[in-house]
Design a protein around this nucleic acid. Structure first.
Length: 615
RNA sequence: GGCUCCGUAGCUUAAUGGAUAGAGCAUCUGACUACGGAUCAGAAGGUUAGAGGUUCGAGUCCUCUCGGAGUCACCA
C-alpha cells in the first residue's frame, strides 16, 4: 500500500533531523497533526522534541526542517513557522489527486481485510421481559462497534448470549399457568415479548399482595418483634426481609422453585411450556432488533452453556491457577493484582456465573477461532470482567490477550434508575415509535415534503435522531435520558447531518437530470477556505475509522460526521455550487459535494443511521 | 471501609501531552426574490472541582483533598 502523506512527512522530518543535526530520530515518533483552523497550513509538525538535539531555537529548527521538506517532498508547497510549530501546506495537485482517488474508491475509508477475527457480544437480554432503553444503548454500541471493526479490516462475528433460564422466566411461566387462561400473543394481539413480560409483572404483583397479607399474620408480627433492629420501622424491616420471605414462607416462591427444579430435571410439560414462552419472546425480540436495524450471526443460550466450565476448573486446579478449600469449593486468589479471592466452583460442585463464562469463552473460541472478543456490557459489571479476563489470562487461553470489555454507562431517567417495580422502564418499542412520531410532527410543522417514501424517510429521521443522540457521547459516560426533550432535531444531531446529505442528494439529482459535465473539476485550482476545510475533513476519514476501531468508540465517528456536515453547511451557505462563476468551479464543487455525501453516508452507516432521500 | 471510574460554560458535551479549551441546547441580535432556513453569521457564557508536583508545554501524567457513582454472595 502506498504511504500516506502523514507517513511521508514523518519520514521526511526524520530524514531532515538526521541530515541537519546528525542525530537519528525514529520516523514513527515524529508528531504530525492536522493544522489548527486559525493557522495557515494543512499539517503541522511539532518541533519542540528536536530543539535539544539541534541545539538551536525552536523557530530556527522549524525553518530548517521546513526548508528541507519543501526541497525533498514534492507534495509540500509552502510552510510557515510559528512558535515552534511548523505548518506545512500541501500542493493543489495533491488535493486534486486526493479528491479524485477518494471518489474513484468505492470503499474509501475502509481498510483492506487484515485476516483477523473478532467477536462482538452485545444485547444479551433476559427472556422474561421486553427490551428497554438500556438494551437500546447496548445494541447501538454493539452494532456500530461491529461495523467499525469491519471497516477497519477485521472479520467480525456478532453474537448475543440469551439468558433464557432461571427463576425469572419461571415466574412468567408460573404466572401464565395460573392466570393465563390459555391466552396467547396471537389470541390477544400482544407482541410476544410484551405478552410474556406482562405475566412477569403480574406475578410480581401477586407476590406483593401475598407478602402484604402475610405481614398481617401473627407469625410475621412475632418475627418483626424479634428480629428488627432498634430504630428500624416495620416498613423498612419488611422491605429488607422480602427475599428471605420469598424463599422461606411464600407459597408462590415455593411454586417457582418447584418449577425451576422440574425444568432442571427435564420434566416434559415444564420444558414444553418453557420453549413455548421463550419462542414468543424471541419473535418479539426479532421485531425489535429489526426496527433498530441490528442483527446477529449467532445466538448462544444460557440453557446450553450454564453447565459449562467445570472441565476448565479441573484444568486450572492442575495448573495451580485455582485452589480447593476443605469444603470442596474451588477458588482463585487474585489478591496480587489488587482483586480478591473469587469462588469458581461451589462446594456442591455446581457452577457459579464465572464458571459458565469461562466455559462459554472457550466454546466460542472453538466455534469461531476469534483471537479477540469484545463484550458490550454496562459498567456496573466492570469488576466482573476484570476478574474474568484475569482468570482467562492465567489459564493461558489463546484469545486471552485480545479480550476487551466495552463498558458503557447506564442510561438513567431524570428520576433515577429505571425500575420495573415502579413502572419507570422505558420500553424499546415505545421509544422507537415515539421518535418517529416526533419526526412526523416536526415535518408537518415545517411543511415537510410529501411523497411515496414519506413514511420511510420519517422513520430514518426519527431513528437517526435517537441513534445519534445515544452514540455521540463517549460510551463510558453515564447518560440521563429525558424522553420529553432528549431527541432534538436541530444542532448537533442526526437530522442535522442527514439534512446536509439531503442537500447534496438534491444537487446530485439535478446533475443527473441536466446531464452536467463534471470533467472540468480537475482544472480548478483556486480553492476557497470552505472548500479546503472540506478536503481536509474528507482526508481525515480513514484515520478516524481506525481510531474508533482501536478505541472501540463509535462516538469518534459521530463527532467526525457532525464536523463534516457543519463544514458542508457553511460551504453551502457561503458559496454557490450550480451558480458558480466558472465551469471548473461548478464542476469541482459538485465533485466535492459528491465526495462529502459519500463519506457522510458511509460514516453514518457505521453508526447504523440511514440517510433519507428527502426530509 | 477496600478497589475502580467520573468531576470541563446554566444544561448536554469535544479535545493521540501541544498553539487563544472547541461545539450544541437554552438566552439575545442578525442573514435568503440565489442549489431546501431541520441552515448560516454574531454576542454573551470557563480559575477544566481544589491544592501541590513532573514537563519546553498539563483538561490530559503523578500525589493529596473535596464531591458523585459503581462494585465488593458458594444470587442469577
Amino acid at each position: 500500500m502506498a504511504m500516506s502523506i502523514v507517513q511521508s512527512l514523518q519520514q521526511a522530518v526524520s530524514q531532515a533531523i538526521e541530515n541537519l543535526y546528525g542525530e537519528p530520530f525514529a520516523a514513527d515518533k515524529v508528531q504530525i497533526a492536522p493544522t489548527s483552523p486559525e493557522f495557515t497550513g494543512d499539517y503541522t509538525a511539532v518541533v519542540f522534541p528536536y530543539v535539544k538535539l539541534a541545539k538551536k531555537a525552536p523557530d530556527v529548527v522549524g525553518a530548517e526542517i521546513g526548508d528541507f521538506l519543501q526541497k525533498n517532498v514534492p507534495d509540500v508547497q509552502a510552510f510557515n513557522v510559528i512558535k515552534g510549530f511548523l505548518n506545512i501546506e500541501l500542493s493543489t495537485a495533491y488535493w486534486q489527486n486526493f479528491l479524485q482517488n477518494a471518489l474513484a474508491d468505492p470503499g474509501f475509508g475502509r481498510q483492506p481485510r487484515n485476516g483477523r477475527k473478532v467477536m462482538v457480544e452485545y444485547s444479551s437480554p433476559n427472556t422474561n421481559k421486553p427490551l428497554h432503553l438500556g438494551h437500546v444503548r447496548n445494541c447501538l454500541l454493539g452494532w456500530s462497534c461491529s461495523q467499525i471493526l469491519d471497516a477497519a479490516g477485521y472479520d467480525v462475528v456478532k453474537v448475543q448470549i440469551v439468558n433464557d433460564r432461571g427463576v425469572a422466566i419461571c415466574k412468567s411461566m408460573l404466572s401464565w399457568l395460573k392466570y393465563g387462561e390459555g391466552k396467547t400473543p396471537e389470541s390477544t394481539g400482544i407482541k410476544g415479548d410484551h405478552f410474556v413480560g406482562d405475566f412477569y409483572v403480574l406475578f410480581e404483583h401477586k407476590t406483593r399482595a401475598e407478602y402484604e397479607a402475610w405481614q398481617q399474620t401473627d407469625a410475621a408480627r412475632a418475627l418483626f418483634a424479634d428480629k428488627h433492629k432498634p430504630e428500624q420501622s416495620e416498613k423498612d424491616f419488611f422491605k429488607d426481609y422480602k427475599n428471605k420471605w420469598f424463599n422461606e414462607y411464600s407459597s408462590l416462591g415455593a411454586e417457582v422453585r418447584d418449577m425451576l427444579l422440574r425444568w432442571e430435571a427435564g420434566h416434559p410439560d415444564t420444558v414444553a411450556l418453557w420453549k413455548q414462552m421463550n419462542n414468543w419472546v424471541y419473535q418479539g425480540f426479532e421485531a425489535t432488533y429489526a426496527k433498530l436495524g441490528v442483527a446477529f450471526d449467532k445466538l448462544y443460550y444460557e440453557s446450553d452453556t450454564y453447565l459449562l466450565g467445570k472441565d476448565i476448573v479441573e484444568e486450572g486446579l492442575s495448573k495451580g491457577v485455582f485452589y480447593r478449600k476443605d469444603d470442596g469449593s474451588v477458588w482463585v486468589d487474585l489478591t496480587d493484582v489488587g482483586y480478591d479471592h473469587k469462588v469458581v466452583l461451589r462446594a456442591d460442585g455446581t457452577s457459579v456465573y464465572i464458571t459458565q463464562d469461562l466455559g462459554t469463552a472457550r466454546m466460542r473460541y472453538h466455534d469461531f477461532g476469534c483471537e479477540s472478543v469484545v463484550y458490550v456490557v454496562a459498567d456496573e459489571q466492570n469488576y466482573v470482567f476484570a476478574v474474568l479476563f484475569e482468570v482467562l489470562r492465567r489459564l493461558e487461553e489463546p484469545y486471552a490477550q485480545g479480550l476487551h470489555h466495552l463498558s458503557y454507562g447506564l442510561v438513567e431517567l431524570p428520576t433515577g434508575r429505571m425500575k420495573t417495580r415502579e413502572g419507570t422502564v422505558v420500553d424499546a418499542d415505545d421509544l422507537v415509535e415515539e421518535v418517529i412520531r416526533i419526526a412526523r410532527e416536526q415535518a408537518a410543522e415545517r411543511g415537510g415534503v410529501e411523497g411515496d417514501d414519506r413514511e420511510e424517510n420519517l422513520r430514518k429521521v426519527g431513528l437517526g435522531a435517537l441513534k445519534f443522540f445515544m452514540i455521540k457521547v463517549n460510551p463510558k459516560r453515564r447518560m440521563i435520558f429525558n424522553p420529553e426533550e432528549s431527541v432534538d432535531l436541530q444542532g448537533q444531531t442526526g437530522p442535522y447531518i442527514q439534512y446536509s446529505w439531503v442537500r447534496i442528494n438534491g444537487l446530485m439529482q439535478r446533475v443527473k437530470r441536466e446531464n452536467v459535465d463534471l470533467s472540468p473539476a480537475v482544472s480548478y485550482t483556486d480553492f476557497q477556505p470552505q472548500e479546503k476545510d472540506l478536503l481536509k475533513a474528507l482526508h481525515e476519514f480513514p484515520g478516524v475509522v481506525l481510531t474508533a476501531a482501536r478505541e472501540y468508540d463509535p462516538s469518534h465517528i459521530a463527532n467526525y460526521c457532525y464536523g463534516l456536515a457543519k463544514s458542508y453547511h457553511r460551504f453551502w451557505h457561503d458559496l454557490s455550487v450550480f451558480n458558480a462563476d466558472a465551469p471548473e468551479a461548478r464542476a469541482f464543487r459538485l465533485e466535492l459535494s459528491r465526495a462529502v455525501g459519500k463519506v457522510l453516508e458511509a460514516g453514518m452507516r457505521l453508526l447504523g443511521i440511514e440517510m433519507p432521500e428527502r426530509m
